[in-house]
């Protein structure tokens, strides 16, 4: 655009400058917070009682000759760098992290980098489906609920969504397994695929997805409904209606579009679970995601895995918050201005 048009059209920087500055500032703020959290986590994991070597050397393996056991211990102490003082280990760990190395798993005899990606992917696949489902239901139901406020429909779903969050997820999962795998025998109990290729792979996704979706539906639905209600009150909706537009057009084209912005920011809230999975659900469904990895690491005292997974969780939460804040500021420029001043 030419300079003359400046009066009418904003340049890219003018339009998005403040938001970019704002995002930049927020990212900079994440770094010290993440560092502090990692320090706390690292300290907690390091000072967990119990000899990390005893924890994975099976008792029976320690009954060799004294020299053999000593050599084995020395090997792992050296390998894991346990002889060094705490600060050295902490900064070495950060150094490794920056080089993309996540430490060495004493249980799997592999660098953590080799397998963590797959676990993240597994969690992600499951949760993407689950959240998409929850999101779709929430939007469809949420709009109708808002339009038909306090109707039978609205009330049913508001109660139904509360039911979904009124039982512990492991128990909900057990009930579903019991109903669909034990009684009806139409879905598998657990796992990700059938080793004998009899059952289609999608059937393995149904139950975990249902449990996750049920758990997230309540807040989503409430949020969509409220956002819609808010929009429906606005003047431009009244105007649209008074222009004689069809009710469907008013709702879906005008109202919903505007309600969508605040709803999308909710994605930020999901980011941690989207990639981080859930320990309980992955444990009960034997789903090899990041939650199951963390559970095993805790049970087997695999400290390098534990640290990296916990820091990963923290990072996800921070990124989620960032996403939400950016989303809000996009939706409402006043926030951004407040922020950049």
């Amino acid at each position: 655009m030419s300079a003359n048009n400046n009066l009418y059209k904003l340049t890219f920087w003018e339009k998005y400058g403040s938001i970019i500055k704002y995002i930049g500032k927020r990212i900079l703020l994440i770094i010290p917070v993440l560092f502090t959290i990692s320090l706390i986590i690292f300290t907690m994991v390091e000072f967990m009682p119990g000899d990390p070597i005893n924890a994975f050397l099976n008792p029976e393996q320690l009954t060799g000759t004294v020299e053999e056991v000593a050599a084995k211990r020395a090997f792992w102490t050296e390998k894991l760098g346990l002889n060094d003082p705490f600060p050295v280990r902490f900064f070495r760990w950060w150094g490794q992290l920056l080089r993309g190395e996540f430490g060495y798993s004493i249980v799997k005899f592999q660098p953590v980098r080799n397998f963590i990606g797959e676990h993240i992917y597994n969690s992600f696949v499951l949760n993407v489906f689950a959240f998409s489902l929850a999101f779709a239901i929430a939007i469809i139901v949420g709009i109708k609920s808002a339009v038909k406020k306090h109707s039978m429909y609205d009330n049913f779903f508001s109660v139904f969504s509360i039911v979904g969050i009124s039982l512990p997820s492991f128990f909900m999962a057990m009930i579903l397994i019991f109903a669909f795998a034990v009684r009806l025998q139409i879905l598998p109990f657990n796992g990700m695929q059938d080793p004998l290729n009899i059952r289609p792979t999608w059937t393995y996704y149904v139950l975990p997805i249902t449990v996750i979706a049920l758990g997230s539906l309540a807040s989503l639905l409430k949020y969509v409904r409220n956002a819609m209600l808010e929009v429906l009150k606005q003047d431009y909706i009244r105007t649209a209606r008074s222009k004689g537009l069809a009710e469907k057009v008013v709702i879906y084209k005008h109202a919903f579009r505007n309600a969508l912005i605040p709803v999308i920011t909710l994605v930020g809230f999901w980011i941690p679970r989207l990639f981080g999975g859930s320990i309980l659900i992955e444990k009960i469904f034997i789903w090899p995601g990041i939650g199951l990895l963390m559970n095993d690491a805790y049970v087997q005292k695999d400290r390098s895995v534990l640290v990296i997974v916990l820091v990963f969780y923290a990072l996800l939460t921070l990124l989620g918050n960032l996403f939400m804040d950016v989303g809000y500021s996009l939706a409402d420029p006043r926030i951004r201005e407040g922020g950049s001043k």
């Binding site: 986590i41 967990m48 969780y313 939460t317």
Partner: peptide, 22 residues
């Protein structure tokens, strides 16, 4: 607010696991 941010992004289970062990 910094403290709040740190606490809010702190993994709940890390604390639960560690304190339970200790």
């Amino acid at each position: 607010m910094r403290v709040t941010e740190i606490v809010s992004s702190f993994p709940f289970l890390a604390l639960a696991f560690t304190l339970s062990v200790i």
